[in-house]
Design a protein around this nucleic acid. Structure first.
Lengths: 347, 347
DNA sequence: TCATCCTCCGCAAACGATTGCACTGGCTTG
DNA sequence: CAAGCCAGTGCAATCGTTTGCGGAGGATGA
């Protein structure tokens, strides 16, 4: 009643029998690449039979035989972070048109989980990995790379290895942010960096120091957040304020950290951008709806995913091509959270 | 150089040879459920050998043999909609602890894509499907159900079928929203419904009519949005205003539609909640950061996913248990977008 | 001492597809 | 007219596991 027709799915053998041919012939007839080995008439018969039976090739059997699965694994920390869905879609959009499937796994940046998930992917014969996790030093990835697993990194590098990667041009983005602030007249600019154990955290924070120094400003107003989160951003901002630091603008490591700043401003009755300007990073959705709308650096996440996928396809096709890395341009999106500083500075 | 060690992964045979036993014995030794058929000493030897070789069972071969894959498919329209990531995580959280893997596919609510993706999942022997797409009438799902595919629906029903489902209690949520508005003194309440071709769209809109009638109010201030999107919400709101409708509050079909209202208010210089109050639905992230913070109905998405997963596990374990449906409680989150109406009403 | 019963393990057949090779017959070619 | 060729098809092995069945050998009971 609940299982009206649990009839087993038709197999290639069923099709072959129905068409009166051998399974080998049926297989060739159904595969466009081998179809020309078969007489047109036979091929037609087989395809008709397949159609009639509703035959669907069993990908598991096919994978076992060919040791190719037509799928790639996509490793991300947490789908819930609005950063990642666009990347996922970008990856899918190019892989899909090439007939590949994408298998997504969340790792929560936990090493054990990461290892387990990746093992699981490999045991399913994925043909490549796209990895968008954060940790900077990463023995697992290094090891996989040495084992010859083809993979592409997004938004990160692994120290001392040459693995193909595609990243946003964070350094230029940070420089643009700083430039925007100095253009407005800010001279005391703080930075709430992401964790320095992450690739992006380190790159952005370094870029910040360079940028402010290039403008002849102090580079010591830097606090590291424990995580890329709103609450850790808030904590860092509180630390900065409580420490008595004087600044009129802050470049946040990412948008969530910037949101944490907003929270603290609300707590302490500070106005943004009146008392202090804020710039985020990533341009996640709905930032334009905030009060004030957040000025931020837009990273082309969809493109990041798409390019990574393209790169992975290249790597699959030509295994010994040299590893290349791609830097995608980012752009400053000026909204309402930045303005010239008050003459008298922060209270 | 790029492929330092493309040595093939060790197989069960390698392990067996290393341990000096037959593959069958190795297989049993490695499987906890059959391990007691093997002498402790032999089992130890096999496990040690497996360890030493870094053996990982090939899930593809296992799936082929057992015709079970340890994975379930999760079908959603678009990961980019902030609604879905929490559902995904919820599903994963319970399935994972049961040793299952989750395969996510996006369909963009496109019928062909849906069919293709689901076929692909099935050809990979997924053991069940969790479907969170929207269309109300759905021949494909009906057909799958008739074929005995075990599946659970999230946030939707298929007309005239009994497929297990878990949903938020939308009707009660809408009623609470309306109740909140009437408590504030509103008497002319509009509704921007989601597309009536979707399950939730229909349920919420119907609930709205019932609720306002229960309060003795008019139920004709309803406009249907073409999609669950910000821009379609804006379009609907413009239509309402341009049509000269008089209202002091609006219940939006979901948060995105509510955001569309915000956009139109900004266009036309209306103030929220001064001129008109707005209530959203879903409580997506960061709504509390908007200006004004959006009052909305919180749906427990993570729970929705988790319960669906639990239900699917039940269905897999006992195929002929009767289909049950689960309604999860929702809750009104009052923020800043609702307030008593101006005495004179909308200009 | 012999029949009997376990325990532990090997044999071999699957699962459903792909693919190198061999075979068949009808054609061309010299 | 024989030799050779080619197109079209079938045979059978194979991918890496799992699992029913049976066999060997030791322990046990009568």
């Amino acid at each position: 009643m609940t299982n009206p027709t649990p009839s087993p799915a038709p197999t290639l053998r069923d099709v072959a029998e129905a068409a009166g041919v051998h399974t080998a012939t049926a297989s060739r007839a159904l595969n466009p690449k081998t179809r020309q080995q078969i007489s047109a008439e036979t091929a037609r018969r087989v395809m008709r039979a397949a159609q009639a039976l509703g035959y669907q090739p069993n990908s598991v059997a096919r994978s076992l035989k060919t040791s190719r699965s037509g799928t790639v694994g996509l490793v991300i920390p947490d789908l819930t972070n609005p950063l990642f869905p666009p990347i996922v879609r970008g990856v899918e959009s190019v892989l899909e048109s090439d007939g590949y499937n994408v298998w997504i796994v969340n790792t929560d940046n936990d090493e054990d989980r990461e290892r387990a998930k990746i093992e699981s992917l490999r045991s399913r014969q994925v043909e490549g990995l796209i990895v968008a996790t954060a940790r900077l030093d990463h023995p697992l990835l290094r090891q996989l790379h040495e084992q010859g697993v083809t993979m592409v990194l997004i938004n990160r590098q692994v120290e001392h290895t040459r693995i193909p990667a595609v990243t946003g041009d964070d350094a230029t983005g940070v420089a643009a942010a700083v430039r925007h602030l100095t253009d407005l007249g800010h001279t005391r600019i703080a930075h709430l960096s992401g964790p320095l154990t992450t690739s992006t955290g380190r790159v952005r924070s370094q870029a910040f120091r360079h940028a402010v120094r290039d403008h002849g400003l102090a580079d010591d107003l830097v606090v590291e957040c424990a995580h890329w989160s709103e609450s850790d951003g808030a904590t860092a901002m509180r630390a900065l304020l409580t420490g008595g630091a004087r600044f009129t603008a802050v470049v946040a490591g990412n948008d969530l950290i910037a949101l944490g700043c907003y929270d603290v401003f609300a707590e302490r009755g500070l106005s943004c951008p009146g008392d202090v300007s804020v710039i985020g990073f990533n341009d996640m959705p709905f930032l334009d709806k905030l009060r004030p709308p957040l000025t931020t650096v837009a990273v082309p996440h969809h493109e990041l995913g798409a390019e990574a996928a393209r790169m992975l396809l290249d790597c699959i096709d030509q295994p010994d091509r040299p590893a290349r890395s791609l830097l995608l341009p980012v752009s400053l999106v000026v909204r309402g959270s930045t303005a010239p500083p008050r003459p008298e500075g922060l209270p």
